[in-house]
Design a protein around this nucleic acid. Structure first.
Lengths: 117, 117
DNA sequence: AGAGTAGTTGAACAGTTGCTCAACTATCGC
DNA sequence: GCGATAGTTGAGCAACTGTTCAACTACTCT
């Protein structure tokens, strides 16, 4: 019932905390933001995204390119689809995937940029 | 010994795959990139980063602000420190944390931007 | 030196995640 | 319809991750 004690310190900078509090976004926004970056936190997924930035490709192309199974690629593509980061079109039995919009490229670019200082 | 069969498809788009292959970065780059975005994939961590974008603060401030324990905050700050995303300065017993550089703000901004379409 | 507060750390636990496997759907060509 | 290929899906498993807890360090003040 009673709240758990969260911080056992006396001197907190009340004004700083209040000021920051006012500038913070909603809980939901942070959840969504974390959810977005979660799509870029895995080696296989960033590879898929970066590959699709170069060319539209089918699941098998990606599997061969990355050296993983079709199933693994398909699972990741599903996650990326649900996050609206990739789109696809079907042509006969083949499903071609590509990036959903420019934001993806921007995020990748800013990331690479940070790595190369 | 023998390689595991990775893809059981006949028709792959060889040219597309080769072209993409040439444009891909190194394995290590993708690992680093995923490692960078991993720092933004958790609600608590993005909150910490966004809070520090507003004001330099100590561990207790962050704990109170986010409603989590000092320990939890400290663990996350350590990860962020190791990733060179935050810096700190000690003043008596108090350790003040702030963002390491503008890149962090850029990444957060582009993320929020994507959420708000 | 001793008490008190800020912060860090490592082990442990619960929850999550990415891959594999096997079974499934969808579409094509005969 | 039938067989073959592209792709999807769910269960299960091993590896990883975030939090908590308790013990620790670092600094201050008397």
């Amino acid at each position: 019932m009673a709240k758990q004690p969260i911080c056992d310190c006396d001197v907190i900078h009340k004004e700083l905390v209040n000021d920051t509090q006012n500038k913070m976004k909603s809980e939901e926004d942070y959840l969504k933001l974390a959810g977005l970056f979660k799509m870029f936190d895995d080696k296989t997924r960033v590879k898929i995204l970066h590959a699709l930035e170069q060319n539209e490709m089918c699941v098998c192309d990606l599997a061969v390119l990355l050296g993983v199974t079709k199933s693994a690629v398909s699972h990741q593509l599903k996650a990326l689809r649900l996050a609206n980061l990739v789109k696809y079109r079907r042509e006969a039995q083949i499903v071609y995937y590509s990036l959903a919009d420019e934001h993806v490229k921007e995020i990748l670019d800013i990331g690479f940029n940070h790595l190369y200082e």
